[in-house]
């Protein structure tokens, strides 16, 4: 086992580093990284982004959104959350969650906290979840990773994630809310997340004898940066990769009621119907047609509405108002 030294707190970079270790690492040893992100929501591989997050809150607070390679639900990261990732050969360890969660449980034992596995994917303290785990397999290799809530802002977590709030029907993976807790609330003697990180690193190194730590070369860092730029920092991956979904948006405004039905695939509007009590069905056909193929993001929708001239169809609304209604 070798620890790849990583001090980045950039969520895009850290997710890119995971993929790099999984697909391009050629060293002889199994690797692990311990990492923290500045505030971010990390969604599962097959989740619908819009369905899972409170986008206005993310925008307002500058919370970054990134899609990960592994499955499961959305999680909130901040500097109080420690993440661990191991990349090993798949053969015998596939779906063996206990092997990888054991070092976490042992590290906690060393600071006087009793934790246990719960179900397949979680680790809990007194029945409350502090660690969620997932795996991804690719060409004979296995990536196991997990979150560890040490001293996270649970209030911000609740605000950033809002599963089930929107009226969306999609086939994507839905998040499940759990009762969560921070490790720090269970300590008899206070320690910092950095100290816990060192204790955990020592436990992970015990999984297999290995040479300790490894510093990525300039060329390797550049490869991770390229993956960051071309994939993890892109709208196409983080939003566009969402499974297809159907959505209905309604609003009662001073002049009447509007009812919009949408189908979104690969992050673009695939079909669209607009109904209202102020106009006849069919009057909106050109507008509906114009929206097909537009990126499902209010800025893009606004540009489309400006181009077609919304005033001719709906003089009561301005472009931004309708764009935000459609995408909000």
């Amino acid at each position: 086992m070798i620890e790849v030294v990583n001090h980045s707190r950039d969520p895009y970079f850290n997710l890119a580093l995971e993929e790099y270790l999984m697909t391009s690492w050629t060293g002889p040893n199994h690797t692990f990284i311990l990492w923290q992100n500045k505030p971010a929501v990390i969604i599962g591989r097959n989740q619908n982004t819009i369905e899972e997050v409170n986008q206005p809150y993310l925008d307002q607070e500058g919370v970054v959104l990134v899609r990960r390679m592994s499955g499961g639900g959305a999680v909130y990261h901040d500097l109080g959350n420690l993440n661990y990732t191991l990349v090993v050969d798949e053969n015998l360890d596939f779906a063996n969650y206990d092997k990888f969660t054991r070092p976490v449980i042992k590290a906690l034992d060393r600071i006087g906290v009793r934790a246990e596995n719960s179900g397949r994917n979680d680790i809990t303290i007194e029945g409350r979840k502090f660690s969620g785990n997932a795996q991804f397999k690719y060409r004979g290799r296995l990536l196991h990773h997990g979150t560890i809530l040490f001293d996270s802002n649970l209030e911000a977590m609740t605000l950033a994630l809002n599963p089930g709030v929107h009226k969306i029907s999609s086939k994507g993976i839905k998040s499940v809310r759990s009762r969560v807790t921070n490790i720090r609330d269970h300590l008899s003697q206070d320690i910092k997340v950095e100290e816990f990180k060192e204790i955990l690193a020592a436990e992970l190194l015990q999984l297999e004898p290995g040479p300790g730590t490894y510093q990525l070369s300039q060329a390797e860092l550049q490869a991770v940066e390229a993956l960051r730029e071309n994939k993890y920092a892109t709208w196409a991956w983080n939003y566009g990769q969402s499974p297809a979904f159907n959505r209905r948006k309604t609003a009662s405004l001073a002049w009447g009621h509007i009812d919009i039905r949408l189908e979104v695939k690969h992050g673009r509007i695939r079909s669209c119907r607009i109904f209202g009590d102020y106009f006849q069905a069919g009057e909106m056909e050109d507008l509906e047609q114009a929206l097909i193929g537009v990126v499902y993001r209010w800025q893009d929708i606004k540009v489309c509405l400006e181009k077609i001239g919304l005033y001719d169809y709906l003089p009561q609304m301005d472009e931004e108002e309708l764009a935000r209604l459609i995408s909000g």
Binding site: R120, A134, K137, L142
Partner: peptide
């Protein structure tokens, strides 16, 4: 493509 199970995502 990918397949997601309760245990893992596989390419």
């Amino acid at each position: 493509g990918v397949v997601e199970s309760v245990k893992a995502v596989a390419t």
